[in-house]
Each structure stands twice: as structure tokens, then as C-alpha cells.
């Protein structure tokens, strides 16, 4: 018997199913005839629980797969492996958090510039390139959606005050 990534995922999925099945008991029954609102999600969650259990058993029986003590799972490797993805996550969260203040135009330009610089490097030449790319691309996209497709993109408090 071994514990590997799949074991942890299966346990997480079982917990998730438990919480959601519990939450399905709170789904209101308006008393109409026909299928209850909780019926279909309960079926899906029960099947999901069964499959998660199968995955848990298979992962524990398996001897080859994704062992947690393998070389790939040391902290330095994990950091390097997920560094760029983490930067994207972080930048996107910041972009969304400040969207109300900066708006889509300024926020978008800053997001693209920040991401380009963090992923591509901080050399002067690159920074100039990144700023040009971010202004031009977001400017074009913003114009297409605002003027071409008539979408009212978030203006942002900064532009509103200005």
C-alpha cells in the first residue's frame, strides 16, 4: 500500500463530495410535481463519490504511480515547476482585484506589462518592448470591443475621476 498524489486527490474529492452532498440537503423543495431540484445533483455526487473511492483504492494498491517521496516532489523543483504559473495566477488576481479602480484599459495594460516583464525579464530593452506591446495590444483589443462590438468595458474609478 502506498500514498501518492492520486491518493491525496481522491481524499480531497471525497471530502468535496461529502460537503456538496451535505449541502444538497439544503436545496429547497417547492413541492411541485416531478423531479426534485436536488435529485440530479445528488445522483451526480453519488457517482462522483463512488469514482473517487475507486480512485482512492486504485492509488493505494498501485505501486508505481506518482510516489510522494520521488525526486520531482522536493520543494525547490515544485517551486521551479510552478513558478511561471504562480506568477500568472498572482498577476491575474491583482488585475481582477484592482479592475474596479483601474478599469479594463489601464488595468489590462498594467497586467500585460507586469506579466511580460515578470516572465520575460527586466532588461531595459525588454522593458521598453514590453511596454510597447502591452499598450498596443490592449489598446487595439479595447478599441475593438468598445467601438466595434459596442461592449461597455469597466472604465475604472481613476478614469472616471480624471
Amino acid at each position: 500500500m502506498s500514498i501518492n498524489k492520486d491518493t491525496i486527490v481522491a481524499i480531497f474529492l471525497l471530502l468535496f463530495c461529502g460537503i456538496m452532498i451535505n449541502s444538497s440537503f439544503d436545496i429547497e423543495d417547492p413541492g411541485y410535481q416531478g423531479m426534485k431540484a436536488s435529485f440530479w445533483p445528488t445522483i451526480v455526487l453519488c457517482l462522483l463519490s463512488v469514482m473517487s473511492l475507486v480512485m482512492l483504492i486504485k492509488s493505494m494498491v498501485s505501486t508505481t504511480d506518482n510516489n510522494l517521496n520521488s525526486e520531482n516532489t522536493n520543494s525547490q523543483n515544485i517551486f521551479l515547476k510552478f513558478k511561471n504559473a504562480s506568477i500568472c495566477f498572482l498577476m491575474f488576481i491583482l488585475f481582477l482585484a484592482f479592475l474596479d479602480y483601474l478599469g479594463m484599459l489601464i488595468g489590462g495594460v498594467l497586467f500585460v506589462f507586469g506579466l511580460l516583464t515578470l516572465l520575460g525579464g527586466f532588461e531595459i530593452k525588454k522593458i521598453i518592448n514590453h511596454s510597447i506591446i502591452s499598450i498596443i495590444t490592449i489598446g487595439i483589443m479595447w478599441s475593438i470591443f468598445t467601438f466595434g462590438l459596442k461592449v461597455i468595458l469597466p472604465e475604472g474609478e481613476i478614469l472616471r475621476i480624471w
Binding site: N84, L96, M104, G108, L115, L119, G120, T137, M141
Partner: peptide, 15 residues
């Protein structure tokens, strides 16, 4: 480079 395309497309996805 891919990082340039990816950054721009991520912003485009949001819009």
C-alpha cells in the same frame, strides 16, 4: 516568444 503571446491572450480572455 510564447510568453508574449500567452500574456496578451490571457488579457484578451478576460476582456
Amino acid at each position: 516568444p510564447m510568453y508574449v503571446l500567452a500574456s496578451v491572450i490571457l488579457a484578451y480572455c478576460a476582456i
